[in-house]
Computed example of a mutant assay.
Amino acid sequence: MNSSRLMNHMNTACDWLIKLFYLNLLWILFTLAGLVIAGIFPATVALFTVLKSFQTGESVRAFNEFWDVYKKEFWRTNRLGIVLTILPIIFYTDWLFTNQFSGTWAMTGKGILLGCFFLYVITLLYVFPVFIEAERKVFPTIKIAFLIGITYPVHTFMTLICITSLLLTFAFLPMAGFLFLASGLACIQSFFSLRLFKKIEAQAVNMHKHNTKIAGYYQTVIREKNPLLKG
């Protein structure tokens, strides 16, 4: 029994390694197809979309879905990409500006910038999963990703720990990083995000039921106190 279970786990692991390798290859090819600058964000959204299908058990053809999402979301994802690219440029420019000062002002400015950059990283963890889940415009997507990141610090911390561990592994094994970097990072983000979204959805359902019960209770009280409303 243990041997059979072990073989099943090994088969699952090998299957996922093959999928991640193939998706990483597709990500590289489609990024290059868009001359990198215009291709990286549509390819990333397509990567997250296919990974979501795999993780939810949907039967899809990876290349077909990748290509369909890449075409459909090309312009919308590049608008998102422009905002996500401009923000770190602004941070870096402001960092250089703070170098013109010294003492308390410089330390305060650098501290604020580091805090803002950390919040940017937290937002980046959820922005692509939110983008494909909610299909909203650019700024609402960024806002929701930011709010989720700071509202659920445990999930955010676990995601950051796993991503950091994976990056350290790739630093020691550069070839593995070349083969699995994009798909590996996206897989971690997608894995934690899907579970967090399910938790948020369950909380929303419970809250709705709770509010419905409260509303029903108050309606009953009002009717009891006001005879005109009875019947």
Results as ranks from 00 to 15, higher is better:
residue 74 F to I: 07
residue 99 N to G: 07
residue 68 D to P: 05
residue 81 G to H: 03
residue 55 Q to T: 02
residue 72 K to I: 06
residue 43 A to H: 06
residue 44 T to W: 03
residue 94 D to E: 14
residue 52 K to A: 04
residue 67 W to Q: 14
residue 35 L to F: 12
residue 95 W to M: 14
residue 61 R to Q: 09
residue 44 T to V: 10
residue 65 E to S: 10
residue 70 Y to L: 11
residue 54 F to D: 06
residue 54 F to R: 02
residue 66 F to H: 04
residue 84 L to D: 01
residue 63 F to V: 15
residue 46 A to K: 03
residue 76 R to P: 00
residue 114 L to F: 14
residue 88 P to G: 10
residue 56 T to I: 08
residue 76 R to Y: 07
residue 94 D to A: 15
residue 115 G to A: 03
residue 54 F to H: 15
residue 57 G to A: 06
residue 113 L to N: 01
residue 104 T to E: 09
residue 114 L to E: 00
residue 92 Y to G: 04
residue 93 T to I: 15
residue 49 T to R: 00
residue 93 T to Y: 08
residue 106 A to T: 01
residue 103 G to T: 09
residue 77 T to L: 04
residue 56 T to A: 05
residue 34 G to P: 01
residue 50 V to G: 07
residue 46 A to I: 12
residue 46 A to S: 15
residue 98 T to Q: 13
residue 95 W to F: 15
residue 99 N to S: 07
residue 64 N to M: 11
residue 114 L to H: 02
residue 105 W to L: 15
residue 84 L to K: 05
residue 73 E to I: 00
residue 108 T to M: 01
residue 77 T to C: 14
residue 62 A to L: 10
residue 43 A to Y: 01
residue 108 T to A: 11
residue 103 G to H: 00
residue 58 E to W: 02
residue 82 I to S: 08
residue 55 Q to E: 08
residue 98 T to M: 15
residue 74 F to W: 12
residue 97 F to H: 02
residue 92 Y to N: 03
residue 115 G to E: 04
residue 99 N to E: 09
residue 85 T to V: 02
residue 49 T to F: 02
residue 41 F to L: 12
residue 85 T to S: 14
residue 44 T to S: 15
residue 86 I to A: 15
residue 105 W to D: 12
residue 44 T to A: 11
residue 107 M to D: 13
residue 81 G to V: 13
residue 86 I to P: 05
residue 82 I to H: 05
residue 104 T to W: 01
residue 69 V to H: 01
residue 61 R to C: 13
residue 90 I to L: 15
residue 59 S to C: 08
residue 75 W to H: 14
residue 66 F to L: 12
residue 90 I to T: 09
residue 71 K to F: 09
residue 83 V to T: 13
residue 106 A to Q: 12
residue 99 N to Y: 05
residue 68 D to G: 03
residue 60 V to S: 02
residue 109 G to N: 07
residue 100 Q to L: 07
residue 89 I to L: 15
residue 41 F to Y: 11
residue 89 I to W: 02
residue 70 Y to E: 06
residue 100 Q to I: 09
residue 66 F to D: 00
residue 66 F to P: 00
residue 51 L to M: 12
residue 81 G to F: 12
residue 47 L to R: 05
residue 83 V to S: 01
residue 83 V to F: 04
residue 92 Y to V: 08
residue 88 P to I: 09
residue 85 T to G: 08
residue 58 E to M: 09
residue 66 F to V: 09
residue 77 T to S: 11
residue 105 W to C: 06
residue 81 G to T: 12
residue 40 I to R: 00
residue 45 V to A: 14
residue 50 V to Q: 00
residue 108 T to Q: 05
residue 45 V to H: 00
residue 34 G to T: 06
residue 44 T to H: 10
residue 70 Y to R: 01
residue 78 N to Y: 10
residue 49 T to Q: 04
residue 43 A to C: 11
residue 46 A to W: 05
residue 76 R to M: 09
residue 48 F to N: 06
residue 43 A to R: 08
residue 112 I to C: 04
residue 46 A to V: 04
residue 80 L to E: 10
residue 100 Q to G: 09
residue 42 P to T: 10
residue 65 E to A: 08
residue 46 A to F: 06
residue 75 W to K: 10
residue 36 V to D: 03
residue 63 F to A: 15
residue 55 Q to V: 07
residue 60 V to W: 01
residue 49 T to D: 12
